[in-house]
Amino acid sequence: MIEVSDLHKSFDQNNVLKGVNLKISDGKSMVIIGASGQGKSVILKCLLGLIKPDKGLVLLNGIDPNSKEKNIALAKIGMLFQGGALFDSLPVWQNVAFRYLNGKRKISTSEARKIAIDKLNRVGLKDSFADSFPSELSGGMQKRVALARAIATEPEIIFFDEPTTGLDPIMAQVINKLIRELVVEMGVTAVTITHDMQSVRSIADEVALLHAGTIQWTGPLKNIDKSKNKYLNQFISGSGKGPIETLR
């Protein structure tokens, strides 16, 4: 269970989050949508404990990621960064098995490699890529490696930050399907932030629309096309007319 209560965050004079409230049940896939610059990534960083909120509370399975128990919370999560954020000094398999090669979960190198290759296969990459370096892979392959790293320790919660940004439509759909398969198969709680409606329809159980620092609408995926919320309707239609201001 993920709970976000009255979350506020400002950067200098810019109030990005003005009281965000969200509840995500276990095993559900929540997609947070919203226009660029509305604070979607800030919510995600607050959830991960990378940014400390000014006010409000975040709980990941009952643990505040901004408290001293941060590492307990982080041990149970996986994260897919927008650009992959793969360590370019390490080969692919060491990226995937990073947690098994370092820190408290350390196991033997051969075991770690075996797990890494298993996870690479799960995201559709052959064993032969294990010893490549991230810079030798295409954008889509890097996303798959990052996905393999996110699921490597079989986390309870996975965060996806703009999982399809920078990918062609075909590869984007492959990644969307892969994410959905993994979420269902592993039974994890997933939080995705995106502004790609194709991703929303492929990944989400529930959708939340963030605008002007607060959640303007939240509900099951099946309701998004029936909603009378003006913000949501404008976002789905991609229209320039509506309450969401556009710059020309």
Binding site: L48, G49, L50, A75, A85, F87, S89, F98, G103, R149
Partner: peptide, 20 residues
């Protein structure tokens, strides 16, 4: 340059999420 690049490409954030 190496750590700076890691910072701007979110590799440092990735380390934190990997409990490191």
């Amino acid at each position: 340059a190496e750590i700076g690049t890691m910072k701007v490409t979110e590799q440092v954030d990735a380390l934190i999420t990997l409990s490191t």
